[in-house]
């Protein structure tokens, strides 16, 4: 099929994008909110520290941004690689 190489480029661009998004996903939740919280304890937020804020508010907000960014970027990639509907 003629569009095979095209699809490969599309797929690796997708994998790259997913990897970047999932690294951020892991850093804010497992990192900032839990395991790296002691490192952020110096940054005070409303009577506690930044890690607590990430655990109860920040991670969810970042997740939201990630999903919309991914959807926007992928729908653009679909068009660039001619695999959109």
């Amino acid at each position: 099929m003629a569009d095979k190489p095209n699809n490969n480029a599309y797929w690796s661009a997708n994998i790259r994008l997913v990897t970047i998004c999932l690294v951020i996903w892991a850093v804010v939740s497992y990192g900032f909110a839990i395991l790296l919280r002691p490192m952020l304890s110096g940054i005070a937020v409303g009577g506690t520290d930044l890690g607590f804020w990430f655990a109860q508010q920040g991670s969810i907000l970042v997740f939201l941004v990630l999903i919309f960014f991914y959807a926007w970027r992928m729908n653009k990639l679909d068009k660039e690689h001619g695999v959109d509907e």
């Binding site: 997913v18 998004c21 999932l22 996903w25 939740s29 909110a33 655990a55 109860q56 991670s59 969810i60 997740f63 990630l66 999903i67 991914y70 959807a71």
Partner: peptide, 14 residues
């Protein structure tokens, strides 16, 4: 809080 929202990132991308 994180577990029941963060799963959507996986679902949306994977």
């Amino acid at each position: 809080l994180m577990g029941w929202t963060g799963g959507y990132v996986l679902m949306a991308m994977l």
